[in-house]
């Protein structure tokens, strides 16, 4: 891997980390939900700084090219995150609908009095 590519990788990883941290601060999202993204961007930086980790893992798992190991790991992490997100959205939706029902019944009772 050329020095230029590594420098670019490190810079992109650092940039991503900074961007994520800034967004989290601004959006006032719940810290619990952002934990994943902070750890994810730290992992990106570590792999960019020490690609030996990726080389080693690819070697152990007998994956032909290192980049395939990186893709595999990132896709898996994102899939898990997507699944958790899907559960969360579903829960959120049913709660909103439940609340809508309660509001409707409350309004009905208020109108009755």
């Amino acid at each position: 891997m050329s020095v230029l590519l590594r420098v670019i990788l490190v810079l992109v990883a650092l940039g991503t980390f900074r961007y994520i941290i800034r967004k989290i601060r601004k959006s006032q999202a719940q810290i619990v939900d952002m934990g994943f993204w902070i750890i994810f961007s730290i992992i990106l930086i570590i792999i960019a700084l020490f690609p030996q980790i990726a080389f080693f893992m690819a070697d152990v798992l007998q994956i032909a090219t290192t980049v395939n190991f990186v893709f595999l790991a990132v896709i898996f992490l994102l899939l898990v995150q997507l699944f958790l997100l899907s559960i969360k959205v579903s829960k959120l939706e049913s709660r909103v609908k439940e609340l809508a029902g309660e509001v409707a019944l409350k309004n009905y009772e208020d109108a009755e009095e």
Partner: peptide, 20 residues
């Protein structure tokens, strides 16, 4: 009548009816 504040679909309309 009971007036749902948003459109929620048949399933939750029905559930609200059951609660009523």
């Amino acid at each position: 009548y009971v007036d749902m504040p948003i459109n929620v679909g048949l399933a939750d309309v029905f559930r609200t009816g059951m609660k009523y």
